[in-house]
Structures are given as structure tokens and as C-alpha cells.
Amino acid sequence: MDARTNARSPGAGSGEIVVSHASVGMFDRGGKSLQLVEDCSFLAERGLFTVLVGPSGCGKTTLMNLIAGYIGADAGTVRLDGVDVKGPGWDRLMVFQETALFPWMTTLENVAYGPMVRGIKTMPEIRAEAGALLERFGLGEFKNRYPRELSGGMQRRGELARALINDPLVLLMDEPFRGLDAMTRQLMQEYLTRLFEETRTTTIFVTSEIDEAIFLADRLVVLSRAPARVAAVIEVDLPRPRRFEQLSSPRYAELKEQALNLLYAEAAAAFEETGAGADIKEAFERRHVAD
């Protein structure tokens, strides 16, 4: 633990997640078994930003819950630095879809509680560190506010701070910017990119927004229609530090086209099989007719 706690140098304090041949099923309300993730394998390499994209309802969140340890796999394994993941832990911290800051705690308390309940530092140390971190996240003036008094963007930054104060080996983000307005979302993407380029904490990020995915990712894992398998892995070789101007580069357009084609193929196949994903298929066709 000591080796980790002071590791803020790029990549040093981060871990590597290996998901191999993982399958997760559940029973629906009718008692029918339903496969959510099937024989899914991928690697989230140390110090890289891995983005999972896939058609809606394909099992992305299930996969994240598996990595976080909230659910167990029926088959296959999830390993963090070679050790099987057995349950939730602060070495893999999740930033949830909607904010999960405790509404009954102030921003500072939210950030301080992780280290506090584990008792690894003294309270004044923790308060000082949490205060400094919030200052750095532009929340210094809001540390004694309750989450409802913060804007959506501030809440997400507060949640990032709550995760990062624990020096997690891996940061898990399940559509963390969902529900933010377009402007805030873009600012948060830029913010997260800068933060990642500074810390290089291994990050696994789920999104259904292709632009967001490519802008953030070092590696794009395109998932198949449900049950989730890996359809393809795309290396995003856009240079870092990332800038929004890169979104208009030819290489970016290529990557986007490649990813969209894969997603379209999955959506179309899902539509053939179950009638699901008709919206995606239709939208894609409309777009390409317009082109």
C-alpha cells in the first residue's frame, strides 16, 4: 500500500486490468436466463485510457460492474495486476452515470470519507489533502456545500476528486458525463483529458458517444450487440496532449468512420435478430444517405 499512496508520477501508480473469457448471465422476470456478457476478453493496459463503446443495451454497464466487483462472472476472470478481482475495492474506483456523491455530506466530507473510513491517515492530514485536491479541481470555494448546491459539472469534478484522493490503480467511468448539457460535457471531456495526461491513471471509460470516445481514448474497444463480446479494438493514434482541433483532422475522420461502421454492423445485426436498435440503424442510414 505504501508504494501506492504517494504515487502520483505519470503511470507509476496505475494498474492493469485483464478481462479474459468473462461471461455474465442473469434471469429475467419470467425466469428465462439471459446472457449479458459472453466470452469477453480485453486488456486495459497500464497508464492507458481505454474506452468501451457499443450499441445501447449491449452490456457495457454489466461489464463495468464486473470489473468493479459489484457482480461476479459466471465464467472467466477479471484480474488486476494479475490478481483475481473478488469484490469492490478502492483500488478500482467507479465514477457513476448520474452523480453518486452522498447528498447528505458536504463536498469536502464526500472526498474525505474514503481515506477516513480506512483509517490510513490522520484526520487533519486527510482534510488538508481533500481541501488541496478540491482547490485543484476548482471546487475550493464549494467544499462546504452540499452536492445539490453544485452544478452538474462541479458534481462530476467532485466525484473525480472523491475517487482520486484514494490513489486508485484504475479509474472506472460509466458514462459519467451523461445528463450534462453539451457545453459542460465538452468542458468535462477536456478537463478529464488534461487530468489523465497529468496522472496517467489507467482508465476504463464507457460511452455511447463516438466523438467523446475517440477524443478521450488511447484504445477503443468496440463491443458487439448483446451479449457483449469484443467486436474490434481500434488503436487511437492521435497525438497527446489532445486538443479539440484534432476532431477535424483526417485521421480522426478515418477512425470515426471505422468505429461507426463496426457499430452499424452490430446494430444492424441486432435489428435483424431481435428488432432492437432500430433507432441506431435508421439514424445511420439517414446520415449516410445525406452524405
Partner: peptide, 11 residues
């Protein structure tokens, strides 16, 4: 999510 967050944080 609050239970999950608390579990992850080591409560």
C-alpha cells in the same frame, strides 16, 4: 449507487 460507492471506498 450509494451502497456501491461506499463499498468501493472501503466503508
Amino acid at each position: 449507487v450509494y451502497f456501491r460507492a461506499a463499498q468501493s471506498l472501503g466503508f
